[in-house]
Write a protein that binds this DNA or RNA. Structure first.
Lengths: 231, 231
DNA sequence: GTCGTCCAAAGGTATGACTTAATCAACCCG
DNA sequence: CGGGTTGATTAAGTCATACCTTTGGACGAC
């Protein structure tokens, strides 16, 4: 999902630098300077700039240069940008934003999934809940993370809403970040695992209200734990 | 927010064509062909392709060409792409997706706004609700639309969550599309206007639960009306 | 002090040559 | 005859350069 070619190299360098605030809003980059700094041709620089431009990270104006736009204008839903911010200095802020988004979206998705999921998806959720129980008890955080991410991605997918479905990858990034940075207990809380089981069963039974309620408990719990972990 | 220069011209032509399905997933475009078709240089074509690529609309592979990716891989949150789809053949599907998204996000945003809004925002919401009452009664759909969009944008902004805030522009696009295509009653329903007033008052009073409930009523109502209007 | 003109700086576009990688097919080996 | 390896071919990727276009700011006239 990442990069391609030389412009990708520039992106991988400039993008995170801007996203982390290291290059402040209002700064001006000149194309010629970038050519020298990265030792590439104008073509390459321009393509990289175009991509930053399409994320609303920068704006290019004649006679001025490539100016970094204020943070408030970024395309904050862009998955690449989210990844950069999660990897950089304002990971806390990004995690909080995404946490609120999850609280809003995932319960709704669970409710829809109870209505729209196909049989395979209902079965898969049950199986994933079981895996989470087992790997959670065993303290195998890697495997737990994998199944947790799969679980949420499956629910989002099963909602039948393409926009919800696309948040699967983002949620996975959140969960991974949480695990990698020790922002969650070393043994997943029992109650969280039980709630996942409850969501799976409610979706299997077509019980939208219960699925929604249980999922809301999961994501609000996650948000509270996150806030606590971030002091 | 749109376009800039010659690459913008290509984008404005290719983007909507892909977004509407006119150019199907799996199709292959060759750069040289595009050069001729639009009578521009390679530089320009490549930059346009880069931008389509960063929306995940296409992928460029050596020895093959620029292939249009399946719809399921598009960056469906990209505002430009949303605009293209709203303007094109699958406006109905896009409106439905966005409708569900609103149902998920706006109630949560209203709840947060009741806690985080500043005084100006609380005042502005009250004033906008008043305007909606007046222009709604007068049947001035244009003015009503403007205030309606402002209202929702302000709530999203006041939530204090940058991701919610960014959905303001998208919601406005939805509302505008709804009005322009006669998908709403010629006189806004009284109950909807009353609910907006209720949201404004709850946010002014810092009553998160009420704000959330009233906003949920607004957006679920809007979604139902949309579904009805789309048969 | 204000307005208008002019110039230079920086991005935007065009071109053509060259490099790189991947597909397809021919070919060789088993 | 089948399968894997190699090589030719094709289209994207990169580079260097020249030229065009816009525009911010300096400079001078009124």
């Amino acid at each position: 999902m990442d990069i391609q070619g030389l412009p990708g190299r520039l992106l991988a360098d400039l993008g995170p630098a801007i996203a982390s605030g290291e290059i402040a809003g209002g700064s001006v980059l000149r194309i010629e300077e970038l050519e020298e700094r990265f030792d590439v041709s104008r073509t390459v620089v321009r393509e990289a700039v175009r991509m930053l431009e399409s994320m609303q990270l920068v704006a290019s104006r004649r006679r001025v240069g490539v100016t970094v736009r204020p943070k408030s204008e970024w395309d904050v839903f862009n998955p690449t940008l989210i990844a950069w911010r999660l990897a950089g200095a304002d990971r806390p802020a990004q995690l909080r934003s995404l946490g609120s988004l999850r609280v809003a979206v995932e319960p709704a998705a669970a409710g829809l999934a109870a209505v729209h999921a196909d049989d395979d998806q209902r079965r898969a959720l049950g199986a994933l809940a079981t895996e989470m129980t087992m790997t959670g008890r065993a303290g195998d955080l890697d495997a737990f993370l994998r199944h947790d991410a799969d679980f949420h991605a499956t629910v989002l997918q099963a909602s039948g809403n393409e926009m919800f479905a696309h948040l699967g990858a983002t949620v996975e990034a959140v969960l991974r970040g949480r695990t990698e940075h020790r922002l969650m207990p070393h043994h997943p809380e029992d109650y969280a695992v039980r709630l996942h089981r409850e969501v799976a069963e409610a979706i299997a039974a077509g019980d939208a209200a219960t699925a929604e309620r249980a999922m809301r408990a999961i994501v609000t719990g996650a948000l509270e734990e996150l806030d606590a972990a971030l002091e």
